[in-house]
């Protein structure tokens, strides 16, 4: 009996290439970011944010609105959502749908964490840019004077906080599936606890750093407030240290062992 005709010849082996690997992680992240179901959730979130934006200072005072955007939106909502979103993304990468296909390919795990963080953070920045747009529109609709003027400071603070808290989310996601509890612990001890102590220790709080920066940029704080570069440097350093820790832990983590029998 004749052998059936060959339909396929295996292509040539390919050598690992870090730039292409980054492209692969970026594409896989981007495709998932633009899923219709996900965007529905984002739109609902933006609508809720708009509703919340109309709540504070019904008298239309600009001070109330600015306080709300700094205290609630920029230093609570943005870090909390950035943390949850990043931790969830990292947990997704530990499911078999990723483990069995991605981590069987020649990408070093620390490099994967860095690529995934970059891709996730870019996507998250886009989401939060929309949210900031909603804040701007709400402020304008309420007739808050000077709402446009506070936007550059808020944008800078938002970019820094999304980056830093995404890194923290990645670390929490690598550590545990109960990352929300870890987040509460961190928020309680560092952000709410130490961050409120009126000493140099409060600089450990990233939201406090950004709040001081935004206040400085809005010309509302004391003369001794840390400068733009100092705050930016601190948040970048925080991001790098936390991300390096996440990458190190992930490198040594066994994958797929939980599903064993």
């Amino acid at each position: 009996m004749n052998a059936p005709p060959r339909l396929f010849t295996l292509p040539e082996p390919v050598a690992p290439h870090w730039r292409h690997a980054w492209g692969g992680v970026w594409r896989l992240t981007l495709h998932r970011h633009f899923l219709p179901g996900r965007w529905l959730m984002v739109l609902i979130g933006l609508a809720v944010l708009a509703l919340l934006g109309f709540a504070p200072g019904r008298g239309g005072l600009s001070r109330h609105f600015t306080e709300w955007t700094v205290a609630f939106y920029a230093t609570f909502l943005v870090p909390a959502l950035a943390f949850i979103s990043a931790a969830g993304a990292m947990r997704d990468e530990m499911k078999s749908s990723t483990v069995d296909y991605v981590f069987t390919r020649p990408v070093r795990r620390p490099a994967f964490v860095a690529f995934r963080f970059l891709a996730h953070t870019v996507c998250a920045q886009l989401d939060f840019l929309l949210a900031l747009g909603v804040v701007l529109v709400v402020g304008a609709a309420r007739g808050v004077p000077g709402v446009l003027a506070i936007m550059p400071a808020l944008l800078l603070g938002q970019v820094l906080l999304v980056t830093a808290f995404s890194a923290l989310g990645f670390l929490a996601g690598v550590l545990t599936s109960r990352y929300i509890i870890l987040g509460f612990g961190y928020a309680g001890v560092i952000e709410v606890g130490i961050g409120q102590i009126p000493t140099q220790l409060s600089r450990l709080s990233m939201t406090q750093q950004v709040r001081t920066l935004v206040d400085t940029l809005l010309l509302r704080s004391e003369a001794h407030s840390p400068g733009l570069l100092a705050v930016t440097g601190t948040l970048v350093l925080f991001t790098l240290v936390v991300l390096a820790l996440a990458a190190l832990l992930f490198h040594h983590r066994e994958q797929g062992a939980a599903s064993e029998t």
């Binding site: 390919v14 050598a15 290439h17 292409h20 690997a21 495709h31 020649p106």
Partner: peptide
């Protein structure tokens, strides 16, 4: 395509 790029393509 994403997986292929992760392999180096």
């Amino acid at each position: 395509v994403g997986l292929g790029m992760l392999s180096g393509l």
